[in-house]
Computed example of a mutant assay.
Amino acid sequence: MTDDTRGSVATAAGPPPHGFDERRAETPLQRLQHVLHARPILGPLAVLVLAIIAFSFVSDRFLTAANLGLVMQQVTVIAVLALGQTLVILTAGIDLSVGAIAVFSSIIMANLATDLGLPGVPALLAGIVCGTAMGAFNGFLVTRVALPPFIVTLGTLSIFFSLNSVVSRSETVRGTDMPSIMTWTGTAFSIGDLRITYGSIIMLLLFGFFYYALGYTAWGRHVYATGDDIEAARLAGIRTGRVLFSVYLVAGLVYAIGAWILIGRLASASPNVGIEYNLNSITAVVLGGTSLFGGRGLVLGTLVGALIVGVFQNGLQLGGVDVVWQGFAIGLLVLVAVSIDQWIRKVRA
């Protein structure tokens, strides 16, 4: 095509309107939709910052170092469990056995150390191996038996909680009866007036590790690809079955580490806790901007989501709000977060 021909074609088509810019044609709401789609963590961060500012006016004690340290301690267990839940949800799955695996792992650790007299470190490692095996069992049923994750983990929720009652005989094991390593995660150290537990440090290290693993390794890219479109991932050569199995196995490992932190937090191993952990872990994931439809989200967003829950519960408590209304506020946040997620997913390419 000659230059004259190209010129005539351009003239026939007509030049674009002076100053026309497709991005400028978007409304402010559409621009926000694009920004949140590209950077999903911005929404949860904005909610967290606004909540902190609001509750600082509700109570003078909220922004004190002692109270902020308490919030961190309160969210540590849920944040770790939500980290494992994030891995599963990124693959468009769901894990309802989170609390059951964590509590059962803690009971195994405690009973091996007290009833069988196993030293602290071997008992701890045995409990972590058992938690990992429970996650692997979930992964086996999802990948090999091809059962839906919801059904699989709903069933194992009942199985693990039942086994938990049998092994524990519905008795709580006191921290004073265990080796010190079992409750070490609940030990706190001070930075000025701020008290931080070693469990919180383990939590932050876990989030840092999985931030790197999901963002900068082939495994992480395969996890996102599998959750976004499992058929397309399979056609691209990704062994999606192995990816899914590895996700449930690793999630079980994370839950077992959460069990160790749970023992330190409670200074005991109780079979009567954990009923609310499933809902709380999913809440933290959703508030953190991870899509329930898979393929989109960040583990750092999950940490922010857990902090949002902790800040709201603590701030409302300091404000004298009844526990019932605290649950109402968190539930409302979840509905808003899911609605925003669906809105963001409709963004135009």
Rank of each mutant, 00 (worst) to 15 (best):
L125H: 02
C130R: 03
F137Q: 01
G139D: 06
L141F: 13
V142Y: 01
T143A: 04
T143D: 02
V145W: 14
L147Y: 02
P148V: 00
T156V: 11
L157K: 08
F160I: 00
F161S: 08
S162L: 06
S162I: 02
S162K: 04
N164S: 11
V166Q: 10
V166H: 09
S168P: 07
E171C: 01
T172C: 03
R174G: 12
T176K: 08
D177I: 03
D177W: 06
M178K: 06
M178T: 06
I181P: 05
M182F: 08
T185F: 05
T187W: 01
S190Y: 03
L194D: 00
R195M: 10
S200M: 11
S200Q: 09
I201C: 11
L204M: 12
L206F: 04
G208N: 06
F209W: 11
F209D: 04
Y211S: 12
Y212W: 14
L214G: 08
Y216M: 12
A218R: 15
W219P: 10
H222C: 10
V223L: 13
V223K: 13
V223T: 15
V223P: 11
V223Q: 04
Y224R: 06
T226Y: 10
G227Y: 08
D229R: 07
I230R: 14
A233F: 10
L235R: 15
I238V: 14
S246Q: 12
Y248F: 15
Y248P: 07
L249V: 08
L249P: 06
V250H: 12
L253H: 07
A256T: 05
A256G: 03
I257K: 01
I257W: 01
G258K: 03
I261G: 03
